[in-house]
């Protein structure tokens, strides 16, 4: 039972952390609850589909279908997170200033929410498909230990969701004027980490065969397989033996994100010179 609890807990919290950050980042945007719920529901359905067709998916592209699928959905999530941050950089200030968003702002907010719903969907799909496969295996296995293991599974879901909720509440405790900067930073690191994981999947697919040698090894300090290592992997893309491509992907996404945000921020300022400048971040 404990083993089941741990595996399920791990997957749920990995998805839950991302959902928590998305919820904190969209605080105050009308209709976000609905969109995030859509994302979670879509992710659960997707997870079941991926689990059901795992064999067929893996057989695509000379046996690299699963890796390419993982890389593709991770890169979609990176694109959506970038979109959100850039959109917030150009509109977030007005929104937090006026507090009630109207007209075009709400529609634009809806588009950003769509992006975030996709991010939530991707996170739930990735971790969820593993949970589905794992729990299905237990259920199909039957036997005397089944009840205990399923109990472990349910407890794992509850515990993972509970801890994710705590993290979300912790983020909300950040004063409103700092929350925006905090979630922008978290989303930037999250996107960079996902890009680094996508790079590893492209290498695993055999698509990119360069820059595969690990650059350094910090497994003596913090093992990637440990609980903290896994959490940091989800949040910032921690890996104890990053290779060149992963590092490049990570740095490139951070640089791209900061550049784009600066660009739109500058043009937003030109459009509305009366806007009070943000405190330095």
């Amino acid at each position: 039972m404990l083993g089941t609890l741990l595996i399920v807990f791990r997957e749920v919290i990995e998805a839950g952390l991302i959902v928590g950050i998305v919820l904190a980042a969209t605080k105050g945007v009308a209709g976000r609850g609905l969109w995030v719920s859509f994302g979670v529901a879509g992710g659960v359905v997707g997870a079941c589909l991926v689990a059901a067709f795992a064999g067929a998916l893996a057989a695509l592209f000379q046996g690299a279908g699963q890796e390419l699928f993982n890389a593709a959905i991770l890169l979609i999530a990176v694109a959506m997170l970038t979109w959100h941050n850039v959109w917030m950089a150009s509109h977030g200030r007005e929104m937090s200033r006026e507090l009630k968003a109207v007209g075009a702002e709400v529609r634009a907010g809806g588009r950003s929410l769509l992006a975030m719903a996709v991010v939530v969907g991707v996170a739930v799909l990735r971790e969820g498909s593993e949970v589905v496969l794992f729990l299905y295996g237990i259920a199909a296995g039957g036997g005397a230990t089944m009840a205990g293991m399923l109990t472990g599974g349910v407890l794992g879901v509850l515990l993972g969701a509970g801890l994710s909720a705590l993290m979300y509440l912790g983020l909300l405790a950040i004063p409103a004027h700092r929350l925006f900067a905090a979630t922008t930073g978290l989303i930037t690191l999250l996107a960079a980490g996902l890009a680094s994981q996508a790079a590893a999947f492209l290498q695993q697919a055999g698509l990119i065969t360069m820059l595969q040698t690990p650059l350094w090894d910090t497994s003596g300090v913090l093992k990637e397989d440990s609980m903290l290592g896994r959490l940091l992997k989800t949040l910032i893309g921690y890996t104890d033996q990053p290779n060149g491509l992963q590092l490049i992907a990570w740095v490139a996404v951070v640089a791209m994100m900061l550049t784009l945000m600066r660009l739109v921020n500058g043009s937003a300022r030109q459009r509305a010179p009366s806007v009070v400048p943000q405190p330095a971040e």
């Binding site: 795992a54 064999g55 893996a58 057989a59 000379q62 046996g63 690299a64 699963q66 890796e67 498909s129 593993e130 496969l133 590893a200 290498q203 695993q204 697919a205 055999g206 065969t209 595969q212 040698t213 497994s219 093992k223 990637e224 397989d225 890996t239 104890d240 033996q241 290779n243």
Partner: peptide
Amino acid sequence: STPLKVEKVIAGGQSGLVRIHP
């Protein structure tokens, strides 16, 4: 495998290619 940088689901009764870098 974290040191091999591989995670791959292999469905029951199926085969999967696991590519390992040098």
